[in-house]
Nucleic acid binder design. Structure first.
Lengths: 354, 354
DNA sequence: TTGTATGCGTTATCAC
DNA sequence: GTGATAACGCATACAA
């Protein structure tokens, strides 16, 4: 059904129908009602091709993400975003990624300022520096620029959508797997490793979920927990790792609630004979972690499909801006459990998700 | 860059450019080369909107699948297909699903005949009745109708793409999880349950993978295996289950390489006190299986994202027919490990995969 | 308040 | 061999 046909049915010109559809006014109440009824009855949907052809709109989306080196976590969401950008370019979606230093508020603010100066049609934001992200989200709201949050949520925000993982549940799952692996008894070391100084709600929630699972299990008395915090790159990192896993009492399991588990795994691997039965579980399938999973140093990795997160983030804008569809508010990605056995098929078809 | 601009660059009319692009001939060698060079240099891609508008093509895709009742496995791929059909209808993709009785070759053949009479632009085929599916695939090839295979492959076929799972690897994964769960020792019962009489290569491969994992493990001597085959609906099914798991020696683990594990779970659940520590693993997250996973009767389910399989099947045709893109030949879906902990987030966003 | 005309980029037909 | 042109459905500027 086309506008022309609707116009004929309503005995008006297609200009009038168009004015009704786009609420441009200058139509009498009665003809408006008549046209709306017909539109409703025939279930009219505009032809996406004709619409796209005549509008010929370009939508500029800016992403604001932490800078990264090859093999680091943030490489993966970016890959997914760029993949989406390729597929969506024919629909006028344009992506540019701006980067900031996770340890520098100044760097974030200057990138944010630059971003706002572009007056983009949409923003993808990783709120790694929580407090500054909140301020930016307010500015975006004032400027009526829709934004998508990726990885973690921020307070009082009204994003077009949030795309990430339930961190608490992720921690619970890690606990279940690790406890089963160590046969429901022994000593577990939770090691929080970060490469920045910011408060990280995701890490925190994963740890809470981990503890919650054990606290509510019927083998709580059989498990002893200890927790440590390590900063990547600090000169005493080896000693910190040694303290976390090499104390007198044997540690049976290690949980690192971030992609940084490979640092511990490398240490364990170096002194393999000292840790013959240590079971390790962590997050994110970055190359360094995958290597240790293949080697057997790491036993489980929990994935959060970072490429898909990136892909979905841009897709949200395609749906919203191009198709005019309502988009899901919160998109929680599955908690993928990866072991040696299913590693090969993990996410090998994410590029197909369009 | 548009055809018009290319025409101007080449000092020809846009009709000539069009003839070159579509290889319609009637163009002199030299002008053809000149135009091709320009097209190549400016990296011309046709405007998808204008193209779609003028062609206004409808693509009729017919799917040929086993009939099912609510809650059965085939409901899920169909759901994914129909979801895709909704999203893709605006691009002219039309889907109709034809059903056949898995236990009736006649039913399959009459549905296949009907399908061919439609002269569809594409076919989605579930080769559940292997031999007949092979014959149909030949006819489709002769008629030059592209087809997508879903769930399992067939011999000597040349599908547009195959969408499914690596069944052997799925079996290996099941073995790993179950063996860990029973602490690498004990007695395991493999129960193959089917609701039809056809040879099922997927089941077979899963069982082989399962055995392969154990045969190549270092705890092979600690595990005893027995295997049984059961037909759903047969009056002696309870006794067959009893024989498989209720023998004198305790069975520690059960592996059912299909979505039919809930039949065993229901039996185990009814006589719970007799099987206090039985661990069970199976395939596919149909409602009956999910219920037993939540209850704890089933410990792991391996998912194969059937909705996504359906979605991808139709998407393949969108990519092939509408966008003219090359599509991936074999799409192996991830082997998802589902337990109580990550069940909630499993595949809750599959509808977003467009 | 309503109707008409033009153009978006591509395809396909027709005249030269 | 080549060029001109109508048509697809929609949005919009402008005429009435």
């Amino acid at each position: 059904m086309t506008i022309k046909e609707i116009a004929k049915l309503a005995n008006v010109s297609l200009g009038t129908v168009d004015r009704v559809i786009h609420k441009r006014g200058k139509v009498s109440k009665e003809t408006e009602k008549k046209i709306l009824d017909i539109i409703d009855k025939v279930n009219y949907t505009p032809n996406i091709y004709a619409r796209g052809l005549v509008l010929n709109k370009q939508y500029r989306i800016k992403a604001l993400l932490p800078e990264f080196r090859q093999g680091q976590y943030w490489e993966m969401p970016v890959k997914g975003m760029q993949n989406a950008a390729t597929n969506l370019s024919q629909f006028g979606i344009q992506l540019e990624v701006l980067y900031f230093d996770q340890n520098s508020v100044t760097s974030f603010n200057s990138a944010a300022k630059q971003l706002l100066s572009y007056k983009p049609d949409g923003v993808i934001l990783a709120p790694v520096i929580n407090f500054e992200a909140v301020k930016l989200s307010k500015k975006l709201k004032d400027a009526q620029i829709p934004y998508v949050l990726i990885d973690s949520l921020i307070q009082n925000s009204e994003p077009l959508s949030f795309i990430g993982q339930d961190a608490f549940q992720s921690g619970r799952l890690a606990a279940k797997l690790l406890c089963t692996e160590i046969n429901l008894k022994g000593s577990i070391s939770i090691i929080s490793i970060k490469n920045n100084e910011n408060y990280n709600s995701t890490l925190q929630q994963r740890i809470e979920g981990f503890k919650d699972y054990i606290a509510n299990s019927d083998f709580i008395d059989q498990i002893s927990l200890n927790e440590s915090h390590i900063h990547v790159g600090s000169p005493d990192m080896p000693m910190a790792i040694e303290n976390a896993i090499g104390t007198k009492e044997n540690v049976d399991g290690v949980f690192v609630p971030s992609s940084m588990i490979h640092h511990v795994a490398a240490y364990v691997d170096r002194y393999r004979q000292r840790f013959p039965n240590l079971k390790m579980i962590g997050n994110d399938l970055i190359p360094n972690n995958i290597r240790h999973l293949e080697k057997g140093t790491i036993h489980y990795l929990i994935g959060q499909r970072p490429e898909n997160q990136g892909y979905y983030a841009l897709s949200s804008f395609y749906k919203h801006l191009v198709l005019g569809q309502r988009v899901a508010e919160d998109i929680y990605l599955p908690l993928d459990i990866i072991t040696q056995e299913n590693l090969k098929y993990y996410n090998n078809n994410f590029q197909y998700n369009f």
